[in-house]
Amino acid sequence: MAKYLILIYGSEQEWDAQTPAELDVKGAGHAAFRAAVGDGYRLGAELESVTTATTLRATGSDAPAVTDGPFMETKEALGGFYLVDAPDLDAAVAAARLLPELREQHGAIEVRPIVDHG
């Protein structure tokens, strides 16, 4: 089994505007995703707002520059992630298709294999 990181992107403004009922539906969608992944589920979390981010940037010296805010100003924000085991990329993508953010106009999912140095 290979490990994949599934990154969930979308608009924080849209997420913040969701009603409790919409959030309940989304929570059920995430529960269904975790159930479908089964034993391949390793870790998952929703992230705090990008306004809470701290970014360290290389400066060419020993001390990086530390700034408040995200690495890049973008329309879409990284809102959460899952770490899963899957037999191959096709299986990881099939699982990612279950995520409720893909039913939102602003949602996007990125699936990335994790390098195995072992």
Score class of each variant (00 low, 15 high):
21 A>S: 12
70 P>S: 12
10 G>M: 02
98 L>E: 04
112 R>N: 10
36 A>Q: 08
34 R>F: 05
111 V>N: 03
5 L>Q: 07
53 A>H: 10
95 A>L: 08
15 W>Y: 13
59 T>E: 11
37 V>D: 03
115 V>Q: 10
27 G>Q: 12
44 G>Q: 03
112 R>M: 10
108 A>K: 10
35 A>D: 14
99 L>I: 12
29 G>F: 05
90 D>L: 06
4 Y>Q: 05
51 T>D: 15
117 H>D: 10
102 L>Q: 05
108 A>R: 13
82 Y>A: 10
106 H>P: 00
12 E>D: 13
86 A>V: 01
53 A>W: 02
117 H>L: 14
94 A>R: 11
104 E>T: 11
62 D>H: 12
117 H>C: 09
28 A>D: 14
111 V>W: 01
78 L>V: 07
88 D>I: 08
64 P>S: 11
62 D>T: 12
42 R>S: 10
68 D>S: 15
56 L>S: 13
58 A>F: 11
7 L>W: 00
15 W>D: 08
8 I>M: 10
59 T>P: 02
42 R>C: 14
7 L>N: 04
19 T>V: 05
52 T>Y: 09
93 V>P: 00
46 E>P: 06
38 G>I: 00
48 E>C: 06
109 I>M: 04
118 G>C: 06
20 P>G: 04
93 V>L: 12
88 D>V: 07
86 A>C: 09
71 F>W: 15
92 A>F: 02
87 P>V: 11
3 K>Y: 06
30 H>A: 04
18 Q>G: 00
23 L>S: 00
39 D>R: 14
65 A>Q: 15
98 L>W: 01
76 E>C: 07
105 Q>G: 13
71 F>Y: 15
68 D>A: 15
60 G>I: 06
11 S>I: 08
20 P>F: 05
7 L>T: 07
13 Q>P: 00
45 A>I: 07
70 P>I: 05
83 L>N: 07
98 L>Q: 12
32 A>H: 05
81 F>E: 03
63 A>K: 15
27 G>C: 09
111 V>Q: 02
104 E>S: 11
97 R>I: 00
110 E>A: 14
5 L>T: 09
6 I>R: 00
82 Y>L: 02
78 L>H: 02
105 Q>D: 14
11 S>E: 12
4 Y>D: 02
77 A>S: 15
63 A>Y: 07
57 R>P: 01
34 R>H: 10
60 G>E: 11
19 T>M: 05
96 A>Y: 01
86 A>Q: 00
95 A>D: 02
115 V>L: 12
50 V>P: 14
108 A>D: 01
114 I>R: 03
78 L>N: 04
82 Y>G: 02
112 R>I: 09
73 E>Q: 14
79 G>K: 01
79 G>E: 03
115 V>K: 05
19 T>D: 08
64 P>F: 10
19 T>W: 04
39 D>F: 02
82 Y>I: 03
41 Y>G: 08
34 R>G: 05
2 A>M: 14
35 A>I: 01
61 S>Y: 04
4 Y>T: 03
116 D>I: 08
77 A>W: 04
8 I>L: 10
84 V>P: 00
87 P>L: 09
15 W>Q: 09
89 L>G: 00
106 H>A: 15
76 E>K: 11
86 A>R: 03
65 A>I: 02
21 A>D: 14
18 Q>L: 14
34 R>Q: 13
